[in-house]
């Protein structure tokens, strides 16, 4: 890790922080975060139901895709 970084490193860090703030706002949109929450809870319940039947739920592959 570089100590006392260059101007380019500072610019990159500021750029990452700006991108982070923009993305947090994007994913915090009520319809987006609400939809993600419902899908997460539905998938958790599906896995719980599989376990209750003695099965082994797959963590990935069976899960819905999250784009959007």
């Amino acid at each position: 890790m570089t100590v006392g970084g260059t101007n380019e490193a500072c610019d990159a860090r500021e750029s990452a922080e700006a991108a982070y703030a923009r993305l947090v706002a994007h994913y915090s949109a009520p319809e987006r975060v609400g939809s993600a929450l419902e899908r997460v809870k539905a998938e958790a319940r599906r896995r719980a139901a599989v376990r209750a039947r003695g099965g082994v739920p797959h963590n990935r592959g069976s899960a819905p895709r999250w784009s959007g």
Partner: peptide
């Protein structure tokens, strides 16, 4: 936290 975790993985 979900928006922050997703944003962290992309931005950082």
């Amino acid at each position: 936290q979900y928006p922050r975790v997703a944003a962290m993985l992309i931005a950082y």
